[in-house]
Design a protein around this nucleic acid. Structure first.
Lengths: 348, 348
DNA sequence: TGTTAGCACTCTTTTTCTTTGAGTGCTAAT
DNA sequence: ATTAGCACTCAAAGAAAAAGAGTGCTAACA
């Protein structure tokens, strides 16, 4: 490369990095003087001004108005995140702290991930989002019906990932023992091993039809089974720490509210749009609702396949250098934990 | 009474009512001219000014500053709510609408009340709060343990009010059939009919002790049972529509956040402080965290006893005349529904 | 005696104008 | 290539002026 005119020489890169660093901390446009006063920058403000003008021409910086300092553009942030920032390597203390955040005593993979999500929200003062492992990987292991009162029954569904949901059904008639036994057996035969993702109305309809008129009283229960599966799917995405975002005054409250209203939709799209193992989305990226916000998502793997994701939602001005290693470490850890268990103990 | 000098004659009362009405709508201090222009006030601004001065002396009104109109004091609101406002009587349409809000198909009393709470939040653009019936009135009807994987068991607890909770327990060892049968029987003998309110650590300790060393492996399950009961108790209070409050700019966001953080505590105290069947709390009343807010609570009865409550939390400037009838109607309706069912169908 | 028009007065709000100061871009010197 | 120097720009802060909403009081009136 040497010999070629470098539009972005080392010094300009350093200056850009310094500007983004400073802006992330203060939220104020950064002037040439501020940068010049930094210890590892050894040129005068005038020189920095020239470089800044160049960086602006290249589209990495912009000026809110003539007499203000510079702030990073989307492209500036992008370059910063991809190449310029020096991601802090985690100290042993950090790692220990993060390890403690993970509640490994928890019975399901989803609960594990959620514990990470909550801890991360606390740690970053941002909202966090998880896409749970369950629906993709788990199949039905058990469907039971338990009588709990006159015409009242509890449907219980257990999945291979250890998740459980129940639902109360009020029927028109009491079930005979014969009917209950039939139902349990029928469920075991027809639904055991079926993926949560696949269980929808059409499957149920088929089952009801196959059941024959004799057991038609059981149809409402089957409907309930379907709703339980839906419940598992709906639970796929969970947001934690939304309240944290309200405190950040660089995010528009109205837009935040709109985001909260239909977060499931939005987040789903967002996660689908991410492709790298770890990715930072902002600006035009995620079909995004909140101006001036940024999302860091990292994927959780299981058996080589993407099984879920963990992410932080916050303002553009995030401490990427700190948070990215956090997320990376947590998702790595989770990925290991749920794969490990897969072999030896078959719990998650 | 006639003959006695009335400090608060009919006209003054009308004027006070009009001021509160106006202030509730606009949020602006109300001047004499505004009141004078109302059709049913047929005196001049000067007269109204005199009355307003009087009302201020009596403590019902105050002036933010000399050249502003008047706003109601707490005492002013109190008088307005207790005596002055004319609570709208519900039209048949209103009643129909409210009836539709109640999801009567729901299997438990708590779910019924929660449906009302959510609807009310929507309707009033405020937060709503419910204190559930369950813990006070329900006893344990069933405790089951269901194996779902290696060393994995689901504990299921059903209460007489139809509520259900489950919990996954990971044990150190697999249970034998004998152990499971013993556990189920032991639970049936010792916990059936026990009130949720009573089931705490001490009961569990007693049961563990009585169980003898032979079955000591089951102790973790008993612990789980205790946690389930706790879960029921924690669920006692639910807040809905908190987000609505953020949109109301007359409530301080910081205080709102603090309220959200420990809403359970706060709300509990608040509800305990209320004594009437329907009550409006504000100012010094509820040991309250949010300045300038007001709470309307109404009790839900069952068999003559207070069984729960339904309330609206919002700014002082609430449309009491509309909302109070709403709440009254809903709690009446719920009270009827859960008593009715008590007799004929034993569901709630 | 209760009501009301009139008016001076008060105090916030809004508007306008001025000042300040951070930061730039350009030029010329190093 | 870098930098000191300087004129210039523009938002933000401050000061001053004007506007306006509303009051309390007095005196007149029914």
């Amino acid at each position: 490369m040497s010999g070629v005119i470098e539009l972005l020489d080392e010094r300009k890169r350093r200056i850009l990095a310094a500007i983004v660093d400073s802006y992330i901390i203060t939220g104020e446009p950064v002037g040439s003087k501020t940068i010049a006063s930094l210890p590892d920058i050894r040129v005068s403000p005038a020189t920095i001004r020239n470089d800044m003008a160049m960086l602006e021409q290249l589209g990495y910086l912009e000026q809110p108005h003539t007499s203000a300092g510079r702030i990073p553009t989307y492209a500036g942030y992008r370059l910063y995140i991809d190449e310029l920032m020096n991601a802090k390597t985690l100290s042993d203390e950090d790692k220990k702290m993060l390890d403690e955040c993970l509640d490994v005593d928890v019975p399901t993979a989803d609960a594990l991930i959620e514990s990470a999500s909550k801890a991360l929200a606390e740690l970053t003062h941002c909202a966090t989002v998880v896409k749970n492992v369950a629906p993709k990987f788990s199949v039905i292991t058990k469907v039971e019906v338990i009588p709990t009162g006159r015409r009242m029954y509890v449907l219980l569904m257990v999945t291979s990932s250890g998740n459980i949901k129940n639902k109360v059904c009020r029927l028109e008639f009491d079930l005979t023992n014969e009917q209950m036994e039939f139902f349990t057996k029928y469920m075991a035969e027809n639904l055991q091993g079926v993926s949560i993702d696949q269980l929808d109305e059409s499957v149920i309809e088929r089952l009801v039809a196959a059941m024959g008129t004799y057991m038609v009283t059981l149809a409402p229960l089957l409907q309930g089974v379907c709703e339980l599966a839906e419940g598992f799917r709906d639970n796929e995405i969970k947001v934690a720490g939304e309240k944290n975002l309200l405190a950040r005054q660089d995010l528009n409250t109205t837009q935040l509210m709109r985001f909260f209203e239909n977060k499931n939709e939005v987040v789903k799209n967002m996660l689908d749009d991410s492709f790298g193992d770890l990715q930072v989305l902002f600006g035009e990226d995620g079909g995004f609702v909140i101006e001036n916000s940024s999302v860091i998502v990292s994927k959780i793997k299981k058996g080589g396949k993407t099984a879920g994701s963990l992410g932080v939602i916050g303002p553009m001005r995030l401490d990427y250098a700190k948070i990215i290693p956090y997320i990376e470490y947590l998702t790595d850890r989770i990925t290991n934990l749920i794969s490990e268990d897969d072999d030896e103990d078959d719990i998650f």
